[in-house]
């Protein structure tokens, strides 16, 4: 059973989507470690180390995602999990920005997959299966 760490990053309290993601991924048979809302990068990374997770799935709904996610890949490298998959989704930036540019910035920050607003967790399941090899 592969482990996935999920949570909502930064000072973000939007809890409903997080519960749905937990439910969806657990039902698919993944070992979901849900660190909940108001989580720091370090919380995600520590949970991933402890659970030997292969994917960290970051939610950001309140529009502050870019600053909250900066430097996360670097911290993963120092923490010995430099190869872990990093996903991010929700409403990751404020308002309506050209998403291809937003996506590019997050890819440069070391995220493997970056989802635009309106993409629910169901639409990402194929990617997860592909990346984790199941």
């Amino acid at each position: 059973m592969k482990s996935i760490v999920i949570g909502v990053i930064g000072a973000d309290v939007h809890a409903v989507g997080n519960k749905i993601i937990d439910y969806t991924l657990s039902n698919l048979g993944y070992n979901v470690i849900n660190i909940g809302v108001l989580s720091s990068q370090e919380d995600f990374i520590n949970a991933a180390i402890e659970s030997d997770a292969e994917l960290i799935l970051v939610s950001s709904l309140y529009g502050h995602g870019e600053i909250d996610c900066r430097g996360m890949r670097q911290k993963c490298i120092e923490s010995g999990i430099g190869d872990i998959f990093l996903y991010v989704g929700g409403n990751i930036v404020v308002g309506k920005q050209d998403f291809s540019e937003v996506k590019q910035r997050f890819l440069q920050m070391g995220f493997n997959r970056v989802y635009p607003p309106g993409i629910s967790i169901d639409m990402a399941i194929n990617d997860i299966k592909n990346d984790l090899g199941e």
Partner: peptide
């Protein structure tokens, strides 16, 4: 230096 405690060691 390199790696936090328990982190990267390779």
């Amino acid at each position: 230096a390199g790696g936090s405690d328990g982190g990267n060691s390779e």
